[in-house]
Write a protein that binds this DNA or RNA. Structure first.
Lengths: 331, 331
DNA sequence: TTGAAAGCGTTACCAC
DNA sequence: GTGGTAACGCTTTCAA
């Protein structure tokens, strides 16, 4: 492997014993200033980096498990909400949390390969992303349990919501409150959750209801999408797969003078912080619970050894606010 | 140390050689089903957990550095904004990021002790928190460089903003736009940044200007504080040390019928996402740059070995919006 | 102050 | 299939 110089190399170059090199590295012991200088010099010359594993092994000390959490290049509130309870739960059980910010599919595979090859974790958390059965088996064989968040995977314990039902719920609510021509504003197709919400949307709004896709999840993109929606079709209800998109949509509607919810109703998804202040009707997703569940599942598997917990589907809740009209009492 | 059973113990109990145990652990090699079962049983009986360090050492493989990032129990957008570029920057340099969610002072010391004793990181990132000189020297002696974010520490490279100047800037702006009686709504005293903003506030508003402290940083708390402000003093301008607090303040003012910015002006701090949509005048803090700077500093120290970068103070920007009146052209 | 040598708990190579 | 037995790179006595 591409391992660099060892203390033996340093010792030889500095004309001292390896014990002395070790002393210098650890700063502590009494070493003559001259020899110390020589050793430091040798280390610098050879660009020496102590091997972590060897140090820990020799030094003894506890053997904390590590969980690698793979999250997609996070841009939204969602991942923060997951990370917070996750980090707390794991810390409480003395499990280290290594954060892996995944940029794209290739990146994911690279990281997965690395984790496997270097055995650098005892547990794996997949957030909003899947893995094929071969991958799953590789990890299984290596004895590294996997837990998934926001993504259902066969034979892997996971928490998620029913995004299809969620998309449907949003569209249905708009129809119940009087909208008849719906459009969907969605995000990157790579996001599985978005695709499911789209499916659910179509199930309620009809398969020919128009869909507008944003390249990213931000108010700016939502705004652009809203402009498209208005120019291309006459709608009286817009379902957004995410709150931020909905915020942008509302901005545009206000700018062009469309009255919400009178002329057009708008609904978001997530119920992230501040949405109540903006008065956005939305489908709430229990994001905190995702992280908490994952931490608990991992603790159960890694520490308590009580086996894999069953997968769980958390409930979605429609939060009616100012961007939709009142629903009739008897639907 | 409290190390558990080793493969030798397992081998003995299962009446096999350690090589066989190793094979079973790694799932790969061909092992007779009967012996495999025996080994698995023995492992279960003894609650065996392979030693990570030993595995990595024996298996060879690259020696990635690890950075432990200590963040206070994160509740706001701030830490997310820091983490994002941080994780990206470190990943690009093949540095692992271990997230340590710090709850309080005692927790911080516990974690610091652990990191030191177990040598579990090659670099340390302190976010929004300080350490004493003894601590700093301990890490220095152990050869673990420290980098600080949002907190200036002697002899430690750090990025931060001038929060005193920020507090002053906010108060001064309100005075320039006509407010004469200011109050401050601040957060937990434990937060150094808040204390500095408070100092700056007093520098401009006068040392007798009233201060209202919230136990947490949320709109709800801001709301409560606003009620207090109004009941205890007649003010025409409220400076908040954080945007979320300001949002709550605005809510309360609206509820009791005070007109913003006509009757009372309000200003926040951070300029977190969506503040433009809420029209909050605020002091923007370049949060993303904090994380990016930290990543670069760490890479410089750990990988490139070009020594410690100089500390940096990033600029604050006042973003005038709808919760303040127009500033006169010639102040 | 310094060096030799014995571990630390695995993996992996070789015989059997 | 399975069991010895060297590494792996470092820390740490123990003498010198």
């Amino acid at each position: 492997m591409g391992s660099g110089p060892t203390i033996y190399d340093i010792a030889k170059r500095a004309q001292v014993g390896i014990a002395t090199v070790s002393r210098v590295i650890n700063g502590s012991a009494r070493v003559a200033e001259s020899t110390r200088a020589a050793v430091v010099q040798a280390m610098a010359d050879l660009d020496f980096r102590p091997n972590r594993a060897a140090r820990r092994l020799a030094a003894g000390g506890p053997n904390r498990p590590r969980v690698a959490a793979l999250l997609p290049f996070f841009s939204t509130n969602f991942y923060f909400s997951v990370c917070k309870p996750l980090s707390q739960g794991l810390a409480a059980a003395d499990i280290d949390l290594v954060l892996c910010n995944i940029q794209d599919r290739a990146d994911k595979n690279r990281q997965l390969d690395r984790l496997l090859k270097e055995r650098s974790c005892e547990g794996l958390l997949l957030c909003s992303m899947g893995v094929g059965p071969e991958r799953r088996d590789e990890f299984h064989r290596a004895g590294i349990p996997i837990v998934a968040v926001d993504y259902a995977l066969p034979e892997i314990p996971s928490v998620q919501v029913d995004n299809i039902a969620g998309g449907k719920l949003a569209a249905e609510y708009l129809r119940r409150t009087g909208s008849t021509k719906l459009a969907l504003v969605t995000g990157p197709a790579a996001a599985h959750a978005f695709r499911d919400r789209e499916i659910g949307f179509h199930a309620s709004a009809g398969s020919d209801a128009p869909v507008f896709r944003c390249a990213a999840v931000s108010p700016e993109e939502g705004r652009i999408a809203a402009a498209q929606v208005l120019s291309e079709s006459a709608v009286d209800g817009i379902v957004c797969v995410n709150d931020l998109l909905a915020v942008g949509v509302l901005d545009h509607l206000r700018e062009v003078g469309r009255v919400v919810p009178k002329d057009i109703q708008v609904i978001g998804f997530d119920d992230q912080p501040l949405m109540d202040h903006l008065g956005l009707t939305t489908v709430r997703q229990p994001m905190d619970d995702f992280g908490a569940w994952a931490a608990e599942a991992l603790v159960q598997i890694l520490i308590e050894r009580t086996g894999q917990p069953p997968s769980e589907t958390l409930p979605l809740t429609l939060i009616p606010r100012a961007t939709t009209r009142r629903a009739p009492e008897h639907p």
